[in-house]
Design a protein around this nucleic acid. Sequence first.
DNA 1: CGCGGTATTGACACTATTCAACATCAGTGG
DNA 2: CCACTGATGTTGAATAGTGTCAATACCGCG
Lengths: 238, 238
Amino acid sequence: MSNAFVRRLEGVERLSKIERQAIVEITKSVQKAGARRPILGEGQRSVGAHVILSGLACRYRILEDGSRQITDFLVPGDLCECEHIVGADSGYSIATLSPCSYTHIDHPSLAALTEKYPRIGRALWSLTLINEGVLREWLANVGRRPAVRRVAYLMSELCFRLQNAETLRPSSCALPLTQIDLADATALSSVHINRVLGRLREKRLVSLQRRSIIVKDTEGLMSFAEFSGNYIQRSHGG
Amino acid sequence: MSNAFVRRLEGVERLSKIERQAIVEITKSVQKAGARRPILGEGQRSVGAHVILSGLACRYRILEDGSRQITDFLVPGDLCECEHIVGADSGYSIATLSPCSYTHIDHPSLAALTEKYPRIGRALWSLTLINEGVLREWLANVGRRPAVRRVAYLMSELCFRLQNAETLRPSSCALPLTQIDLADATALSSVHINRVLGRLREKRLVSLQRRSIIVKDTEGLMSFAEFSGNYIQRSHGG
DNA sequence: CGCGGTATTGACACTATTCAACATCAGTGG
DNA sequence: CCACTGATGTTGAATAGTGTCAATACCGCG
């Protein structure tokens, strides 16, 4: 009777049983996709939004010169492409990184939902604002931090958000990312990512597997990266 | 009977006379500040949001190593610090770049407004989503574009947004930025900004004045930067 | 078994940074 | 009205940090 999206919304706004129910209702037609599949393919235009219910996905764009910039990681509970609901189209694509389940919410349903339950509308706005905060963090990260710290910071954030979404807090965390993915998210070359990861491995913070990176010591990585999750999760006032 | 904020909201949502009136009402206590003054000083915490009504401001953060990252330019009609209204606090500061007039909206007033007029709530969400798009653009810009294009792109965007806010479309546009500001926004050093601007001046795209940069040929600059404003302004469907 | 994407390593090139010296200008107080 | 001051702009030289290229290794998958 609850899912990742409900839990996420409850993290920013207290919901009544009826509101919870309405959200469960709107997200009940679940789709599944394997790793590295498009959810919103390049060139495609969505007519609504998607909610990630399990797994890890990302939003990205291919630039003029062919390089790819990943701009968001999407963890369970994340809503994406709201801009379509609101009428814009910014030309980004969504793809899974690990196997995902997700649901599609069409324009009219969401409009009706927020009309009927303004508190849900408010919660959605909150999620968008938090996401804005994450984007600013990425901007500062890519703009100003040297490679090693930059990579550590990004991985810290991703661990933090994944663990939050699963309401777990293990000291180790597997990230289903290739080194190329990490390069496209941090705006470094994959060659350099490889060297950076070597250094983090020497510090015993991560270990490497083919097609995935294992953070051995999330606490250690976060403190090395000087990461704090304040901007992502509120202390939960109500 | 109209101001920059009303015009901005009307750009994303059709408003009734009563809704317009309500917005004018909530933004009527105007404050003014000269150039380079804090609106929300470092370390200060806001209890609401600010709306820029005229002039140019920016949002920024000082990182661990003392460097400054500007994450947003705020043009007339822009709303900022909504995250406070919604309960978060991301630790950024706001300062004017040119003389500004602005207004403060406190938490309860905005809550009441969006409760009473859901369409206004929806319009505010739209603004936030557009802003998210702008941030993704900045991320791609800082992450992947070489210095000259990067600077050109940023200036293009700023011209575009300023001209939109003023509903003017002159071919020349004065940006009240020092080279240091530009460096902090593009994540380059001010020394390098200086050299880059030299090149753009050779191309007759910009001219330099002390403490401000004049874009001589906005069309030319935008096409050089391969800039398109699609992600900022909708074609205006309803 | 071979193919294609990924990972690893070295050599080298290049962009942008840092440092330093100096120039310019607006504002300030004498 | 002038000299002083501090922030900004300008230029050159040396350097650091990443990117690029290329060769090789690895491994899951068809």
